[in-house]
Amino acid sequence: MSGEYIAQQIVNGLILGSMYALVAIGFSMIYGIIRLINFAHGDVVMIGAFLTLGLLQVAGAPFLIVALVVLIASAIVGILIEKGAFRPMRGAPQVTGFIASLAVSIMLQNLGILVLTAQPRNFTFPDYLQKVINMGGVSFRAVDLVIMLSALTLMCALILLVNKTKLGMAMRATAENIDVARLMGININRTIMATFAMGSALAGIAGLMWGGKFGQIDPLLGFVPGLKSFVAAVIGGVGSIPGAILGGYVLGLSEVLFVGLLPPIYSAFRDAFVFSTLILILLIMPNGILGKPMEEGT
């Protein structure tokens, strides 16, 4: 096994990890603020991917505009999901929210099937993004570079927003104690809505990237990355944004290395590997790498 091969695998892992990290951030933020494991979060990835397809290939809009529209539209989708399903059952047991999110997920997937049919669709980015770059034996496409850099940029922007702005401060305060946050004059409905909007915007962009990376999308596409990003959030410590980012890269790298370094016969078991890791982490270190102690659900 050559050094170049391993370097190539690491680059692939970082690309996958960037996408997991973007989705995991939303999982973690939403969990952090209302203790909800939002199963429907992965389906926002699917919506982002189809929006990209529509805008880029059908409407022929320029790439940057497409990215911007996807960002905003996904945020709106997140807001609608929160308003429609989760706000009316705020205060209910955690499991209730989780079942509801499962229902929302199944609804979105089947709306996708209803409107777009279950047929996978091909997806191509503009030529200049498909160009192959070769650096010291490691080759990747321009789109891979765009994925990694824009994921990093978005994550930095989000961390700044959460740590340096008044809205971010309100979000962190609400995550800690909803009642006291209200006593400070914080409108928690608006704060929770903002959290869904931000998390979903990142998930939508991850959908754009997913399409660009794998070249084919269908209405069920969000399921697996959604679940895996949840695993990433748990690895990093659910509720923590840096944890979600770290968890995303750790999962992306280990998944690619699992497939790349072990004999091919094992690669079919990659999903089993990911979910065994999830169960193990929940049992052994439920707070993840960077998380704070979490309260037990009822």
Binding site: I37, V95, L227, I279, L283, E296, T298
Partner: peptide, 26 residues
């Protein structure tokens, strides 16, 4: 092992079990 978890964490772990069973059968 898994029943030490509660609430939605148990739900997620059992979902993981379901997927593992599917992968193994496949």
């Amino acid at each position: 092992p898994v029943l030490r978890l509660r609430g939605h964490y148990l739900a997620v772990a059992t979902l993981g079990f379901l997927i593992i069973v599917q992968v193994l059968i496949t």
